[in-house]
Design a binder for these strands. Structure first.
Length: 420
DNA sequence: TCTGGGGTCCTAGGACCC
DNA sequence: TCTGGGGTCCTAGGACCC
């Protein structure tokens, strides 16, 4: 048996925990750059705010219904997430952290007899310790647990938990789940299946294996197995090592000047280098990319990326910045208004497996000590307090975050104050 | 004016080898 | 007119996830 536990409207709920006045009100959280709505409270969904709607299209609705709007506060959400995960891991050590707001638990070793009772307990504990509402779905496979979780959100009786313990209960949920609600069915597969009159998950499991395999590859076959109660998706206790890391952002406004792009690209490069150091990894290869707005139909779209080999796999900021700027030199073109840039590193290996080059001109030992010192200072004083000059000081291009809440749980200066 | 960011997995097809 | 067959590796692109 597996449980899928996820936080309801996670980002919106996090904002509510520290601002009870938001209770019962429509709340939305915007993506980076205050671009579009990525989290919505129940009330916001009810007035018709759809996932990923651009903020500028919501202006009327926001005014009309007095919607409370927030910029993404990842420091806060990340910290709340680790609190939830810690509580979950107190129920069982067999836990897979699936995303910032959800986790699978493997319940097979658990002595709990009554699964429903366990689900209730999980829900209550998280609510009590963090203030966050969660939903629990329990079933024989991960995909069914996902479906049970979705079902738990829809149903009127005992909302927030649902267990699929026998074939009858499973069949009921399959028949009441739209095909698009199955984990792994996206827009394209939905279209394909609807063309073949497959409307529900119940219809889907009636399809012959060969058809699924032919039209939806092994991915479809796995979904089919999972829905039939045969676990076919890997259990990942430990997150597998990352294959690539990326830092990219849209700019607050369209950027034309090369110097501003250099600031941005070197900032992203420094960020990627920091991510590598946190994972104790080095990268052997990088890509830098640059693009104009895909939404401006009148102007020519310019998307260009360049690949660069790093002579020796590295996580040293200065080195990664150096090559990123070299890449920018290659792809930069005057006469365009750029919306977005990014730095990607691949060929990632553990830092203790780096093969040093015979003709290496970089003093890696010294640089590693420098990076450790830099990370330490920044950890104490706050992110980016010490940085490379090329990253710029003003950073006018930096993304917008006009409605940012405080970092209540991670910064002493931003603790919640209560007047009594 | 204003449209997120960071990932994974799979397949097909080309290049290359014997 | 004839022009193998198998294998591997790499890449681009598609689909999906949160």
């Amino acid at each position: 048996m597996f449980a899928l536990v996820d936080c309801n409207n996670f980002y919106a709920s996090c904002e509510r925990v520290f601002n009870p006045a938001l209770e019962g009100k429509p709340v939305i959280v915007l993506s980076n750059n205050d671009g579009c709505a990525i989290a919505r409270s129940k009330e916001a969904k009810a007035i018709g705010i759809k996932m990923a709607t651009p903020a500028f299209m919501l202006e009327d609705l926001i005014k009309e219904h007095d919607v409370k709007v927030f910029s993404s506060n990842y420091t806060l959400y990340g910290d709340m997430s680790s609190r939830v995960m810690e509580i979950l891991s107190s129920f069982t050590p067999s836990i897979e952290y699936y995303s910032i707001d959800e986790a699978f638990l493997d319940l097979s070793e658990l002595k709990y007899q009554d699964m429903t009772e366990l689900a209730v307990k999980i829900r209550q504990t998280i609510k009590q310790y963090t203030g966050l509402p969660v939903t629990v779905g329990i079933a024989p496979t991960k995909t069914l647990a996902k479906l049970a979780n979705r079902f738990a959100k829809k149903k009127k009786l005992t909302p927030g938990i649902h267990c699929l313990l026998d074939p009858v209960q499973i069949q009921e949920v399959l028949d009441h789940s739209k095909i698009s609600e199955v984990w792994g069915i996206g827009r394209q597969h939905e279209k394909l299946l609807l063309r073949h009159h497959v409307k529900t998950a119940g219809d889907f499991i009636k399809l012959p294996d060969e058809w699924v395999r032919k039209n939806m590859s092994v991915v479809g076959q796995r979904m089919l197995n999972e829905l039939c109660g045969i676990p076919s998706i890997k259990w990942e206790d430990q997150p597998p090592p990352k294959k690539g890391m990326c830092t990219s952002r849209s700019f607050a406004y369209l950027v034309t000047s090369k110097s501003e792009l250099q600031e941005a690209v070197s900032t992203y490069a420094a960020n990627v280098a920091l991510k590598l150091r946190r994972e104790h990894s080095c990268a052997g290869h990088m890509q830098v990319f640059l693009q104009t707005s895909p939404f401006n139909n009148e102007k020519e779209l310019y998307i260009k990326s360049v690949d660069l080999d790093l002579p020796v796999p590295t996580n040293i900021s200065a080195e990664i910045i150096h090559y990123a700027l070299k890449g920018l030199d290659i792809i930069y073109k005057t006469g365009f208004k750029f919306l977005k840039a990014g730095v990607i590193v691949i060929e990632i290996i553990p830092e203790d497996q780096v093969q040093h080059g015979l003709f290496d001109t970089v003093n890696r030992e010294k640089n590693n000590r420098l990076m450790a010192a830099l990370d330490n200072v920044n950890k104490t004083l706050g992110k980016d307090m010490v940085r490379f000059a090329v990253q710029g000081y003003e950073k006018k291009w930096k993304l917008k975050a006009a409605y940012l809440s405080k970092r209540y749980t991670t910064n002493y200066k931003e603790l919640l104050t209560i007047k009594i």
